[in-house]
Amino acid sequence: MSFQGETRRIVVAPVGEMVAAFCLALVRGASNGVKIAGTMARRFENRRVLGELAGLDDRMLRDIGLTRADLRDASAAPFVGDPTRVLVLRATERRAAARLLARAPREN
């Protein structure tokens, strides 16, 4: 190979690496944008479901282990937060407490 060919390759290689790095960064940014959009869509859906739960009567809420206070607490979470975490935590706590109460020896 000639000296001129080697010189051209050395000069062009860093530009190609920069273009490749830019393309990879662009793809990563787009991927992160899609993840954020999916997360926000899920949170909006969970807020909608919270509204549907608020439409249920107290007996139906009790059947799934929730109370009106749980719904109020979940709706008080920041808008970008996930309200279903509060609901799942409260229902799980109630089920665990009921199991412990059932296992406890009864005193007369």
Rank of each mutant, 00 (worst) to 15 (best):
M60W: 07
D82Y: 05
G81W: 14
V88G: 02
V27H: 03
T84E: 03
A37E: 04
L50A: 01
L89C: 10
I64C: 04
N46C: 00
T39I: 15
A69N: 12
A30S: 03
N108T: 11
D73Q: 11
L89D: 15
F3G: 10
E17W: 06
R59Q: 08
A74G: 00
A102Y: 04
N32Q: 11
I64M: 10
L66Y: 02
K35E: 11
A20V: 08
P78H: 10
R95S: 07
P105Y: 02
S31H: 06
G16R: 14
Q4G: 02
A25R: 09
D82S: 05
S75P: 03
L24F: 03
S2R: 14
A97E: 12
P83D: 01
A41V: 08
D63F: 01
V88M: 04
R95Q: 12
A98L: 07
G65F: 04
A76S: 14
R85M: 11
A69F: 04
I64K: 11
R59S: 08
K35W: 06
K35Y: 09
G65V: 07
G38F: 14
R68T: 05
S75G: 12
L56Q: 03
V34T: 03
V19H: 07
R43H: 15
T67N: 02
R85N: 13
L26M: 10
L89Y: 15
A74Y: 08
R68V: 05
M1S: 15
A102P: 06
F79L: 10
D82H: 09
L101S: 15
M1D: 14
R95I: 11
P105L: 03
F22Q: 12
T92P: 00
V12K: 09
G81K: 13
R68Q: 08
V12T: 13
N108K: 14
V80C: 06
M1G: 15
R42P: 02
A20H: 12
A76M: 10
G81M: 07
G29E: 02
A98E: 05
L66C: 05
L87Y: 01
D57K: 06
L100Q: 09
L71Q: 01
R72W: 06
Q4H: 14
V86K: 02
L66D: 00
